[in-house]
Design a protein around this nucleic acid. Structure first.
Lengths: 172, 172
DNA sequence: TTGATTGCAAAGCATTTGCATGCTA
DNA sequence: TAGCATGCAAATGCTTTGCAATCAA
């Protein structure tokens, strides 16, 4: 699951190609933002990424991070996801198995999973309706194993630092 | 699919019960908003519903519609959905088969579908991960049958008045 | 040199909140 | 009568845009 240190040569190549094809320009900011995004194996908001970038170059603005994340998404390197806390998260997309998410509404933990059976059934269903699917999103909310154990207290497991905070389960 | 004229006695009962249990109060606005929501068999934004309510009572404010939609959701009568245009839609939930959505990115049409097979696989998958699911959301984006035919022009089928406008496929 | 890019501030947009007034229970 | 509900306006929070200065090609 956790990737070893690597240089993301292929990803950078893809990004540059996308930039060139669109008649855009390569800049230090875009390189830096992409670099940090690629080496952070996590679900990040634009804000999260902004602060990480700040550490390396405090002159980079919030806007540029937003814009670059859009670019990365267009290039197929990033994917947008929402977990119900009204924020847009970005995750790696290229070279990553497609997967779906289970979100714990107690502690906010996000579990990635993949089921070929579900994928196939979706395609079958689409086919039946004459629909030509391009992408999809499946999210399952509920209570994770750990939180089921500590159900009595209705609090997150000790030590847990949830990425996603489920406030009122809106902004699905 | 399309419901015949009915009085929604059961739904109103549920709403009142929810209101009483929560120590809230029944008001003319809440009654009106619920009434119009129930008789509109469609995916509505708060804004949409606001304008429908306006026709009957121009004194009702936007805020109250928002707040009442939240109430209806809490009561289990409505469900929030997002189709990728950055808006929150509400659909009937009570007495309606659970279903998922296919969204056409060309014309914005929303197709509801249900697959027991997919549902079962999801439960199985959750079970395997020790996850206790409470609800889920599956959305498939792609091109609908009609738009595949008129693919050459890359425009929505004539006469179609899409509810959802897909601009840049964000706000998933 | 040209035109894309950046970062700031300001604008957008959907949604939420503060508060004085109005109304249920 | 108590205190929840309402509607307005203002405030949010996230995201986008306008624009002058900057920088890649």
């Amino acid at each position: 699951m956790v990737k070893k240190k690597e240089d993301f040569t292929k990803e950078k190549e893809i990004f540059l190609e996308h930039i060139q094809k669109a008649g855009l320009r390569r800049t230090a900011q875009r390189d830096l933002i992409m670099e940090i995004f690629l080496k952070t194996e996590d679900h990040l908001t634009s804000e999260d990424l902004y602060w990480l970038v700040q550490k390396h170059d405090p002159s980079v603005g919030h806007t540029t991070v937003y814009r670059t994340l859009k670019l990365l998404t267009e290039a197929g390197l990033a994917r947008e996801v929402r977990f119900g806390d009204n924020k847009t998260y970005y995750e790696h997309h290229y070279n990553h198995e497609h997967h779906d998410h289970m979100i714990c509404t107690e502690c906010g933990k996000v579990i990635e999973f993949f089921s070929q059976a579900i994928e196939s059934m979706q395609d079958e269903m689409a086919d039946k309706l004459g629909f030509h699917p391009t992408h999809h999103s499946l999210r399952i909310w509920g209570v994770c194993e750990e939180c089921q154990k500590s159900e009595v207290t209705h609090s997150a497991p000790s030590g847990a630092q949830p990425k996603v905070r489920m406030r009122s389960m809106t902004g699905i």
